[in-house]
Amino acid sequence: MKGLLRYAITRILMTIPMLFILLTIVFLVLRVMPGDPVSAMLGAHAPERVIEEKKEELGLNKPIMVQYVNYLGQLARFDLGNSMVLKQRVSAPIKEKLPATIELTFWGMFFTLLIGVPLGAYAANKRRTGRDFGIRLYGNIAYCIPVYWMGLMLQLIFGVWLKWLPVAGRTSPRMLSSQFSKTGFYLFDTLLAGNLRAFNDVAVHLLLPSLTLGIVLSGIFVRLTRANMLDVLKSDYVLAARARGVSEKLVVYKHGLKNAFIPILTMLGLQFAILLAGAVLTETTFSWPGMGRLLMERIYLRDYPTVQGVIVVFALMVSVISLMVDLLYAAIDPRVKY
Protein backbone atom coordinates (compact mmCIF):
# COMPACT_ATOMS: atom_id res chain seq x y z
CA MET A 1 0.00 0.00 0.00
CA LYS A 2 2.84 2.32 0.89
CA GLY A 3 4.56 1.45 -2.36
CA LEU A 4 1.35 2.17 -4.21
CA LEU A 5 1.10 5.62 -2.68
CA ARG A 6 4.70 6.37 -3.48
CA TYR A 7 4.19 5.21 -7.05
CA ALA A 8 1.11 7.40 -7.46
CA ILE A 9 2.91 10.44 -6.06
CA THR A 10 5.92 9.86 -8.34
CA ARG A 11 3.61 9.58 -11.31
CA ILE A 12 1.82 12.78 -10.40
CA LEU A 13 5.11 14.60 -9.99
CA MET A 14 6.19 13.29 -13.39
CA THR A 15 3.27 15.10 -15.03
CA ILE A 16 4.84 18.42 -14.05
CA PRO A 17 7.72 18.32 -16.55
CA MET A 18 5.34 16.88 -19.15
CA LEU A 19 2.93 19.79 -18.65
CA PHE A 20 5.83 22.21 -18.76
CA ILE A 21 7.04 20.94 -22.14
CA LEU A 22 3.55 20.78 -23.57
CA LEU A 23 2.71 24.29 -22.43
CA THR A 24 5.94 25.72 -23.80
CA ILE A 25 5.12 24.32 -27.21
CA VAL A 26 1.50 25.50 -27.13
CA PHE A 27 2.53 28.92 -25.83
CA LEU A 28 5.01 29.42 -28.66
CA VAL A 29 2.83 27.97 -31.42
CA LEU A 30 -0.06 30.21 -30.46
CA ARG A 31 2.12 33.29 -30.69
CA VAL A 32 3.79 32.21 -33.92
CA MET A 33 0.37 31.71 -35.54
CA PRO A 34 -0.75 34.69 -37.60
CA GLY A 35 -3.26 36.94 -35.84
CA ASP A 36 -3.63 37.83 -32.17
CA PRO A 37 -6.48 38.39 -29.72
CA VAL A 38 -6.49 42.15 -30.22
CA SER A 39 -7.02 42.11 -33.97
CA ALA A 40 -9.49 39.23 -33.54
CA MET A 41 -11.48 41.41 -31.15
CA LEU A 42 -11.16 44.85 -32.74
CA GLY A 43 -11.01 43.89 -36.38
CA ALA A 44 -8.43 44.90 -38.98
CA HIS A 45 -9.46 48.55 -39.20
CA ALA A 46 -9.15 49.67 -35.57
CA PRO A 47 -6.96 52.76 -34.99
CA GLU A 48 -3.33 52.04 -34.09
CA ARG A 49 -3.70 53.83 -30.73
CA VAL A 50 -6.60 51.60 -29.61
CA ILE A 51 -4.72 48.51 -30.62
CA GLU A 52 -1.63 49.59 -28.69
CA GLU A 53 -3.73 50.39 -25.61
CA LYS A 54 -5.44 47.00 -25.74
CA LYS A 55 -2.10 45.23 -26.18
CA GLU A 56 -0.71 46.97 -23.16
CA GLU A 57 -3.79 46.10 -21.14
CA LEU A 58 -3.38 42.42 -21.99
CA GLY A 59 0.40 42.47 -21.48
CA LEU A 60 0.97 41.50 -25.13
CA ASN A 61 3.41 44.37 -25.66
CA LYS A 62 5.99 42.73 -23.43
CA PRO A 63 8.65 40.42 -24.89
CA ILE A 64 7.47 36.83 -25.33
CA MET A 65 10.00 35.55 -22.76
CA VAL A 66 8.53 37.87 -20.15
CA GLN A 67 4.99 36.84 -21.04
CA TYR A 68 6.03 33.23 -20.80
CA VAL A 69 7.65 33.56 -17.39
CA ASN A 70 4.67 35.55 -16.10
CA TYR A 71 2.30 32.86 -17.32
CA LEU A 72 4.27 30.06 -15.67
CA GLY A 73 4.37 32.05 -12.45
CA GLN A 74 0.62 32.39 -12.59
CA LEU A 75 0.20 28.69 -13.27
CA ALA A 76 2.42 27.80 -10.32
CA ARG A 77 -0.19 29.54 -8.15
CA PHE A 78 -2.85 27.28 -9.75
CA ASP A 79 -4.28 30.26 -11.59
CA LEU A 80 -5.20 29.86 -15.26
CA GLY A 81 -5.60 33.63 -15.61
CA ASN A 82 -8.18 35.72 -17.44
CA SER A 83 -9.53 35.32 -20.92
CA MET A 84 -8.11 37.83 -23.39
CA VAL A 85 -11.30 38.24 -25.37
CA LEU A 86 -14.11 37.88 -22.87
CA LYS A 87 -14.43 39.41 -19.45
CA GLN A 88 -14.14 36.12 -17.62
CA ARG A 89 -11.70 33.90 -15.79
CA VAL A 90 -10.28 31.10 -17.93
CA SER A 91 -11.52 28.64 -15.33
CA ALA A 92 -15.16 29.77 -15.73
CA PRO A 93 -15.95 28.23 -19.16
CA ILE A 94 -13.75 25.21 -18.36
CA LYS A 95 -15.72 24.49 -15.21
CA GLU A 96 -18.90 24.75 -17.21
CA LYS A 97 -17.81 22.62 -20.20
CA LEU A 98 -15.62 20.00 -18.56
CA PRO A 99 -18.50 17.83 -17.27
CA ALA A 100 -19.98 17.69 -20.79
CA THR A 101 -16.70 16.40 -22.19
CA ILE A 102 -16.13 13.94 -19.37
CA GLU A 103 -19.64 12.62 -19.84
CA LEU A 104 -19.07 12.23 -23.58
CA THR A 105 -15.67 10.57 -23.29
CA PHE A 106 -16.83 8.28 -20.48
CA TRP A 107 -19.74 6.94 -22.51
CA GLY A 108 -17.58 6.92 -25.64
CA MET A 109 -15.13 4.66 -23.82
CA PHE A 110 -18.02 2.63 -22.46
CA PHE A 111 -19.34 1.92 -25.97
CA THR A 112 -15.81 1.29 -27.25
CA LEU A 113 -15.35 -1.51 -24.73
CA LEU A 114 -18.94 -2.73 -24.90
CA ILE A 115 -18.63 -3.22 -28.65
CA GLY A 116 -14.94 -4.02 -29.03
CA VAL A 117 -14.15 -6.53 -26.30
CA PRO A 118 -17.10 -8.95 -26.60
CA LEU A 119 -16.93 -8.90 -30.40
CA GLY A 120 -13.20 -9.60 -30.31
CA ALA A 121 -13.58 -12.40 -27.77
CA TYR A 122 -16.42 -13.94 -29.75
CA ALA A 123 -14.44 -13.76 -32.99
CA ALA A 124 -11.47 -15.46 -31.31
CA ASN A 125 -13.74 -18.22 -30.09
CA LYS A 126 -15.18 -18.70 -33.58
CA ARG A 127 -11.93 -18.21 -35.42
CA ARG A 128 -11.82 -18.88 -39.14
CA THR A 129 -15.59 -18.92 -39.50
CA GLY A 130 -17.81 -16.53 -41.42
CA ARG A 131 -18.72 -14.71 -38.22
CA ASP A 132 -15.08 -14.23 -37.34
CA PHE A 133 -14.43 -12.86 -40.80
CA GLY A 134 -17.40 -10.50 -40.54
CA ILE A 135 -16.27 -9.19 -37.17
CA ARG A 136 -12.72 -8.67 -38.42
CA LEU A 137 -14.06 -6.79 -41.41
CA TYR A 138 -16.10 -4.59 -39.09
CA GLY A 139 -12.98 -3.95 -36.99
CA ASN A 140 -10.95 -2.87 -40.00
CA ILE A 141 -13.66 -0.62 -41.36
CA ALA A 142 -14.44 1.01 -38.01
CA TYR A 143 -10.75 1.63 -37.49
CA CYS A 144 -10.44 3.44 -40.83
CA ILE A 145 -13.51 5.68 -40.61
CA PRO A 146 -12.83 9.32 -39.70
CA VAL A 147 -14.78 10.18 -36.60
CA TYR A 148 -16.54 13.25 -38.03
CA TRP A 149 -17.74 11.28 -41.07
CA MET A 150 -19.07 8.57 -38.77
CA GLY A 151 -20.87 11.29 -36.79
CA LEU A 152 -22.42 12.76 -39.91
CA MET A 153 -23.58 9.35 -41.13
CA LEU A 154 -25.18 8.48 -37.80
CA GLN A 155 -26.89 11.88 -37.77
CA LEU A 156 -28.17 11.24 -41.27
CA ILE A 157 -29.44 7.73 -40.52
CA PHE A 158 -30.83 8.05 -37.01
CA GLY A 159 -31.60 11.75 -36.96
CA VAL A 160 -32.73 12.68 -40.44
CA TRP A 161 -34.00 9.49 -42.05
CA LEU A 162 -35.33 7.50 -39.10
CA LYS A 163 -35.92 10.51 -36.86
CA TRP A 164 -35.21 8.36 -33.80
CA LEU A 165 -32.57 10.47 -32.13
CA PRO A 166 -31.75 14.17 -31.85
CA VAL A 167 -28.72 15.28 -33.86
CA ALA A 168 -27.32 18.08 -31.73
CA GLY A 169 -26.88 19.50 -28.24
CA ARG A 170 -26.99 17.99 -24.77
CA THR A 171 -30.70 18.61 -24.19
CA SER A 172 -33.81 19.62 -26.13
CA PRO A 173 -34.11 23.37 -26.55
CA ARG A 174 -37.10 23.54 -24.20
CA MET A 175 -35.44 21.49 -21.48
CA LEU A 176 -33.93 23.96 -19.04
CA SER A 177 -30.80 22.53 -17.56
CA SER A 178 -31.01 25.02 -14.69
CA GLN A 179 -33.89 22.95 -13.35
CA PHE A 180 -31.70 19.98 -12.63
CA SER A 181 -28.08 20.92 -13.16
CA LYS A 182 -25.95 20.75 -10.06
CA THR A 183 -22.73 19.03 -11.01
CA GLY A 184 -22.88 19.55 -14.77
CA PHE A 185 -23.04 15.78 -15.34
CA TYR A 186 -26.54 15.78 -16.74
CA LEU A 187 -27.26 12.05 -16.52
CA PHE A 188 -26.28 12.12 -12.88
CA ASP A 189 -28.05 15.41 -12.19
CA THR A 190 -31.36 14.38 -13.70
CA LEU A 191 -31.34 11.15 -11.73
CA LEU A 192 -30.51 13.05 -8.57
CA ALA A 193 -33.39 15.43 -9.21
CA GLY A 194 -35.65 12.45 -9.89
CA ASN A 195 -36.59 14.04 -13.21
CA LEU A 196 -36.99 10.97 -15.45
CA ARG A 197 -38.26 12.95 -18.41
CA ALA A 198 -35.16 15.07 -18.36
CA PHE A 199 -32.99 11.98 -17.83
CA ASN A 200 -34.47 10.40 -20.89
CA ASP A 201 -33.95 13.58 -22.87
CA VAL A 202 -30.33 13.83 -21.80
CA ALA A 203 -29.71 10.14 -22.50
CA VAL A 204 -31.02 10.25 -26.08
CA HIS A 205 -28.92 13.32 -26.77
CA LEU A 206 -25.85 11.56 -25.44
CA LEU A 207 -26.42 8.38 -27.43
CA LEU A 208 -25.36 9.41 -30.93
CA PRO A 209 -22.16 11.30 -30.08
CA SER A 210 -20.92 8.66 -27.65
CA LEU A 211 -21.85 5.89 -30.07
CA THR A 212 -19.90 7.70 -32.78
CA LEU A 213 -16.79 7.69 -30.62
CA GLY A 214 -17.50 4.15 -29.45
CA ILE A 215 -17.86 2.66 -32.92
CA VAL A 216 -14.79 4.35 -34.35
CA LEU A 217 -12.55 3.37 -31.44
CA SER A 218 -14.04 -0.13 -31.10
CA GLY A 219 -12.28 -1.21 -34.31
CA ILE A 220 -8.86 -1.36 -32.73
CA PHE A 221 -10.24 -3.10 -29.64
CA VAL A 222 -11.94 -5.78 -31.71
CA ARG A 223 -8.64 -6.59 -33.37
CA LEU A 224 -6.63 -6.37 -30.16
CA THR A 225 -9.04 -8.48 -28.12
CA ARG A 226 -9.25 -11.12 -30.82
CA ALA A 227 -5.48 -11.36 -31.23
CA ASN A 228 -4.88 -11.53 -27.49
CA MET A 229 -7.62 -14.04 -26.90
CA LEU A 230 -6.18 -16.29 -29.59
CA ASP A 231 -2.80 -16.11 -27.90
CA VAL A 232 -4.20 -16.78 -24.46
CA LEU A 233 -6.40 -19.65 -25.65
CA LYS A 234 -3.27 -21.30 -27.04
CA SER A 235 -1.46 -20.97 -23.72
CA ASP A 236 -0.45 -23.88 -21.52
CA TYR A 237 -2.66 -22.89 -18.61
CA VAL A 238 -5.75 -22.92 -20.81
CA LEU A 239 -4.88 -26.41 -22.02
CA ALA A 240 -4.17 -27.46 -18.44
CA ALA A 241 -7.51 -26.05 -17.28
CA ARG A 242 -9.33 -27.93 -20.03
CA ALA A 243 -7.46 -31.08 -19.04
CA ARG A 244 -8.88 -30.69 -15.53
CA GLY A 245 -12.37 -30.68 -16.96
CA VAL A 246 -12.98 -26.97 -16.60
CA SER A 247 -15.91 -26.07 -18.86
CA GLU A 248 -15.37 -24.18 -22.08
CA LYS A 249 -17.31 -21.14 -20.83
CA LEU A 250 -15.06 -20.71 -17.80
CA VAL A 251 -11.94 -21.40 -19.84
CA VAL A 252 -12.78 -18.73 -22.39
CA TYR A 253 -14.28 -16.04 -20.20
CA LYS A 254 -12.62 -16.53 -16.80
CA HIS A 255 -9.11 -17.51 -17.85
CA GLY A 256 -9.09 -16.29 -21.43
CA LEU A 257 -10.68 -12.89 -21.23
CA LYS A 258 -9.10 -11.82 -17.96
CA ASN A 259 -5.62 -12.62 -19.23
CA ALA A 260 -6.32 -11.01 -22.58
CA PHE A 261 -7.60 -7.92 -20.80
CA ILE A 262 -4.17 -6.76 -19.59
CA PRO A 263 -2.95 -5.53 -22.99
CA ILE A 264 -6.45 -4.19 -23.67
CA LEU A 265 -6.11 -2.04 -20.59
CA THR A 266 -2.78 -0.71 -21.87
CA MET A 267 -4.43 0.18 -25.14
CA LEU A 268 -7.27 1.85 -23.27
CA GLY A 269 -4.82 4.20 -21.61
CA LEU A 270 -3.10 4.94 -24.91
CA GLN A 271 -6.33 5.44 -26.80
CA PHE A 272 -7.66 7.90 -24.27
CA ALA A 273 -5.66 10.72 -25.82
CA ILE A 274 -7.08 9.76 -29.20
CA LEU A 275 -10.52 9.64 -27.66
CA LEU A 276 -10.12 13.23 -26.46
CA ALA A 277 -9.00 14.30 -29.92
CA GLY A 278 -12.01 12.47 -31.33
CA ALA A 279 -14.19 14.20 -28.78
CA VAL A 280 -13.06 17.60 -30.09
CA LEU A 281 -14.28 16.66 -33.58
CA THR A 282 -17.40 14.90 -32.33
CA GLU A 283 -18.38 17.86 -30.19
CA THR A 284 -18.18 20.05 -33.27
CA THR A 285 -20.25 17.61 -35.34
CA PHE A 286 -22.92 17.33 -32.66
CA SER A 287 -22.81 20.92 -31.32
CA TRP A 288 -21.88 19.39 -27.99
CA PRO A 289 -21.11 22.20 -25.54
CA GLY A 290 -17.87 20.72 -24.26
CA MET A 291 -14.17 21.42 -23.98
CA GLY A 292 -13.51 20.51 -27.59
CA ARG A 293 -15.85 23.13 -28.96
CA LEU A 294 -14.54 25.64 -26.43
CA LEU A 295 -11.03 24.95 -27.69
CA MET A 296 -12.04 25.37 -31.33
CA GLU A 297 -13.89 28.65 -30.65
CA ARG A 298 -11.09 30.13 -28.63
CA ILE A 299 -8.44 29.15 -31.16
CA TYR A 300 -10.35 31.19 -33.76
CA LEU A 301 -10.48 34.12 -31.32
CA ARG A 302 -6.79 33.71 -30.48
CA ASP A 303 -7.75 33.65 -26.81
CA TYR A 304 -4.28 32.54 -25.71
CA PRO A 305 -4.91 31.93 -22.00
CA THR A 306 -8.12 29.96 -22.55
CA VAL A 307 -6.53 27.73 -25.21
CA GLN A 308 -3.60 27.11 -22.89
CA GLY A 309 -5.96 26.40 -20.02
CA VAL A 310 -7.97 23.86 -22.01
CA ILE A 311 -4.76 22.12 -23.07
CA VAL A 312 -3.62 21.93 -19.45
CA VAL A 313 -6.90 20.29 -18.50
CA PHE A 314 -6.70 17.82 -21.41
CA ALA A 315 -3.14 16.92 -20.45
CA LEU A 316 -4.16 16.39 -16.83
CA MET A 317 -7.04 14.16 -17.91
CA VAL A 318 -4.69 12.00 -19.98
CA SER A 319 -2.24 11.69 -17.09
CA VAL A 320 -4.98 10.82 -14.62
CA ILE A 321 -6.32 8.12 -16.92
CA SER A 322 -2.90 6.60 -17.53
CA LEU A 323 -2.27 6.60 -13.80
CA MET A 324 -5.61 4.89 -13.24
CA VAL A 325 -4.71 2.29 -15.88
CA ASP A 326 -1.45 1.58 -14.08
CA LEU A 327 -3.23 1.18 -10.78
CA LEU A 328 -5.79 -1.13 -12.40
CA TYR A 329 -2.96 -3.42 -13.52
CA ALA A 330 -2.18 -4.08 -9.91
CA ALA A 331 -5.82 -4.90 -9.26
CA ILE A 332 -6.00 -7.43 -12.13
CA ASP A 333 -2.53 -8.91 -12.17
CA PRO A 334 -1.05 -10.21 -8.91
CA ARG A 335 2.43 -10.06 -10.44
CA VAL A 336 2.25 -6.26 -10.60
CA LYS A 337 3.33 -4.65 -7.36
CA TYR A 338 4.04 -1.01 -6.73
Partner: peptide, 10 residues
Protein backbone atom coordinates in the same frame (compact mmCIF):
# COMPACT_ATOMS: atom_id res chain seq x y z
CA UNK B 1 5.67 -30.21 -19.62
CA UNK B 2 5.93 -26.69 -18.49
CA UNK B 3 4.91 -26.03 -14.91
CA UNK B 4 5.93 -22.38 -15.23
CA UNK B 5 3.18 -21.67 -17.74
CA UNK B 6 0.60 -24.29 -16.81
CA UNK B 7 -0.99 -22.32 -13.99
CA UNK B 8 -3.09 -19.25 -14.72
CA UNK B 9 -0.94 -16.38 -13.39
CA UNK B 10 -3.95 -14.27 -12.41
Amino acid sequence: QNPLTSLDPL
